[in-house]
Design a protein around this nucleic acid. Sequence first.
RNA 1: CGGGGUGUAGCGUAGCCCGGUAUCGCGCUUGGUUUGGGACCAAGAGGUCGUAGGUUCGAAUCCUGCCACCCCGACCA
Length: 490
Amino acid sequence: MSKSLPSRADNYSEWYNELVKRADLAENSAVRGCMIIKPYGYSIWEKMQRALDDMFKETGHSNAYFPLFIPKSFLSKEASHVEGFAKECAVVTHYRLKNDPNGGGVIVDPDAKLEEELIVRPTSETVIWSSYKNWIQSYRDLPLLINQWANVVRWEMRTRLFLRTAEFLWQEGHTAHATKQEAIEETEQMLEVYAEFAETFMAMPVLKGIKTANERFAGADETYCIEAMMQDGKALQAGTSHFLGQNFAKAFDVKFVNKENQLDYVWGTSWGVSTRLVGALIMAHSDDQGLVLPPKLAPIQVVIVPIYKGDEQLENIKARINPLVKALKKRGVSVKFDFTDNQSPGFKFAEYELKGVPIRLAIGNRDMENGTIELARRDTREKTSMPFEGIEDVIVDTLEDIQRNIYQKAFDFRAANTFEVNSWDEFTAKIEDGGFLSAHWDGSSETEEKIKELTKATIRCIPLDAKEEAGKCILTGAPSSRRVIFARAY
RNA sequence: CGGGGUGUAGCGUAGCCCGGUAUCGCGCUUGGUUUGGGACCAAGAGGUCGUAGGUUCGAAUCCUGCCACCCCGACCA
């Protein structure tokens, strides 16, 4: 194994794949397309979960759990929903194995065929709405605000660790409301929650917008999304929030009596983010030395590496460092004091850089004599010798500064790679370099398809803050009233 | 599903054309010396050469089937 990563400039996707493996985040499993999330990778996901879960609770949602299996008949109740997912479903057909009479292990017992096949959930709208039918009778039962943390399976042709896997972990919120207005507000609120999470915790600026009809969730009336820009200029959909209208209520016959004693279908939303966010996090900030993690999501925020000769020096260093570790933990900073002697300090430096630990402190005999400590920050890779006295405050401030700095860096990168284009020539030339292209579009699915076919660029979203502006579609020249964002996407 | 490629120790590989029981590096174990940017020395352990069959005195090597994976395309909320 060579010591350094492939560089982003040489081969971005190889850099990504290698980084995921080397940083010990995840690996491929024996099952095609399914990944094993290793402890370090999982701890990042856990940090994400905790922050998101708090935000969901804060906005009034409760967690629940629905089954992994969906009766086949459920899936077909909402026509466009089944159409959207049918091609990528894993199906359970039998419930028993038996010994192979010809030897050679076990075989599926043909006598154990299920009456009705079960689909491994690709998303849970259908099971959940079939329960909501029983849960909702009156406007007093509404709104119903449920979230679940679960795994889902979508049999993708081509997979990549975290970004697109056949099985992935996610949360899916499913809410029911008495009015259309309230459901739309919920959809928008959750988009806002996602955007805030992405920007404050992941330090990743996102574009909020609405999907075109082509890109809309199967079964939704409107799909809202947050789109982020990766360092290669490609777009990544980081989260979606769907206004389901009354589609699932009608498909599953979920009615309620309103205040005026009239029977009506409820209005629904669903919204989700997945382990894909871990992939987004990696691609948004990391560099050729390895991961760069935002302090708010880093499993280890500070690592302390002692440099010593002999037990006596180590004991002296421990005596100085242990109180610092204690004090930092008390302030909510996660610290690792790595005094193992299996590896040289140089090895540890490289290792913790690869793993994206935001701050590294090094302390050796020289520092012990001078009353100093060396602080290295991962984002800028700057090393500074500092007085040991007062280092605790410096660390806390620096963590905040790193969080700010990597957000700003990502923000500036996106700004530098977002362009307004006004002609087809300009569009086709510019799209080759990646980035977001803000351009006019005539609003038709045919044009959108055509552009995708010609350039591989898709409409990522119609930004929520898009200004009214008269213009001409870059492909057809037909009139348009606002710009949309095009990009090549993951 | 089309086109191309690859399967050899935990990982990365040499050997294959031209058949003689497998090379090197990393990692691992033990001991010692080291430690301010991926330490060094010594001694070790570790292999159904993807799989099934065929050719042969003899197969990692040649032939055939199968399987898996990777890349390109198709596909992808």
